[in-house]
C-alpha cells in the first residue's frame, strides 16, 4: 500500500505554522500536559477502585449473619428469622444478606455496562436527574467537573473488577485457615485483617496489576467528557498540525513506557511478598 505522508518530527518540538515567530508553543508541552492529566485521573481513580473494590469484594465473601443492634424497635413476624430481641429493649437485625446482595448487585451493574456509556451517564444524565440546584452545582460550581466525574466513573467501574479479584483471592484460601483463626478466638474482623486479607492480596497481585494497567489505559475514555488527557491532546495535535503519525507515536511510546514500568515493578513486588507454597510467581 502506498503511503504519501510528510514525516516531520519537529512538530513535537515546534509549531511550524508560526514559523516567522519561532517556537511559540511546542506541541511537546501539550503531550506532557496531557500525560500529567492521564496520571492524575488514573491514580485518583485507583484510590477509589482499590479501597471501594476491596470493601465490595469482602462483602461478597461474608457468609455468617451480621447483626446490627437497633434500639427500641418492635420486630415484625415476617422477618423473625433474621431478628433477635436482646431483652433490654433493643433488637438485633441480620443485615448480612442485605450487604451481600448489595455488593452482588453493584458488581453486576458496574461490570456489565460499557465504560463509555457510564462516562456519559455520570456526566450528562446524572445532573439532570438530581435536584435543579444539585445539578447546577455538578455542572458549573464543582471544581474541575470533567476531571472528578471521570475519576468517580473510572474508580467505581474498576472497583467492581477489583472486588471480584478480592473475592476470588479470599475464596481461594482453604476454609481450614478460616476455621483455625476462629478457633483461636479471633473476631471476624481479626480473621479478615490478620489471616485472610494478607494472603488474598498476595495471591491477587497479577489480576490487580492488570486492573491498574486497565485503569491507566481506560483513562483515555475521559476524553469523551472533555478531560484533556494524553489521547485527547494527541488528537488535538493531530487536528492542529495534521501530523497524525508523529503525535500518536509519541503517545504510544508514553503509554507503553508506563505500563512496562508498572509491570516490571509489580513483578518484583510479587516475587518479594510471595508466600512459599501458594500459587504465585515468586514461589517457583
Amino acid at each position: 500500500m502506498e503511503f504519501s505522508y510528510n514525516w516531520d518530527w519537529s512538530v513535537l518540538l515546534c509549531t511550524v505554522e508560526d514559523v516567522e515567530i519561532g517556537c511559540i508553543a511546542p506541541y511537546f508541552y501539550w503531550i506532557v500536559e496531557g500525560f500529567g492529566w492521564t496520571i492524575a485521573v488514573a491514580s485518583a481513580a485507583w484510590v477509589i477502585a482499590f479501597s471501594w473494590g476491596s470493601f465490595i469484594g469482602i462483602l461478597r465473601t461474608l457468609e455468617a449473619p451480621i447483626w446490627l443492634v437497633v434500639p427500641f424497635l418492635k420486630p415484625s413476624m415476617k422477618y423473625k428469622s433474621s431478628v433477635i430481641e436482646t431483652g433490654n429493649g433493643a433488637v438485633m437485625i441480620n443485615i448480612g444478606w442485605f450487604l451481600h446482595g448489595f455488593a452482588t448487585v453493584y458488581v453486576t451493574i458496574f461490570r456489565n455496562i460499557p465504560l463509555l456509556v457510564q462516562m456519559f451517564l455520570w456526566y450528562f444524565v446524572l445532573p439532570e436527574v438530581v435536584s435543579k440546584e444539585a445539578g447546577m452545582w455538578l455542572k458549573r460550581e464543582m471544581p474541575l467537573p470533567e476531571y472528578w466525574t471521570a475519576v468517580a466513573c473510572l474508580g467505581l467501574y474498576t472497583a467492581s473488577r477489583v472486588g471480584e479479584a478480592v473475592r476470588a483471592g479470599i475464596n481461594s484460601i482453604t476454609q481450614g485457615q478460616h476455621y483455625a483463626a476462629m478457633a483461636i478466638g479471633l473476631t471476624r474482623v481479626q480473621v479478615y485483617r490478620c489471616v485472610l486479607l494478607p494472603v488474598a492480596y498476595r495471591i491477587i497481585i497479577p489480576p490487580l496489576t492488570s486492573d491498574f494497567l486497565g485503569i491507566f489505559k481506560n483513562s483515555s475514555l475521559a476524553l469523551t467528557i472533555g478531560v484533556l488527557e494524553l489521547t485527547a491532546m494527541t488528537r488535538q495535535i493531530d487536528e492542529y498540525s495534521y501530523q497524525t503519525f508523529e503525535a500518536f507515536t509519541a503517545a504510544t511510546v508514553l503509554y507503553i513506557l508506563v505500563t512496562a514500568i508498572v509491570m516490571f515493578a509489580m513483578r518484583i513486588v510479587e516475587g518479594r511478598v510471595a508466600i512459599p507454597g501458594m500459587i504465585s510467581l515468586g514461589a517457583k
Partner: peptide, 24 residues
Amino acid sequence: ALMANGTIDMECGSTTNNLTRQKQ
C-alpha cells in the same frame, strides 16, 4: 490517516482548507 495510507481517494464533508493541512 486514511488519506495518507491510500485508503480513501477523496474526503467529502465539511473540512476547512488551511495552509497547515496542505502540508499533508
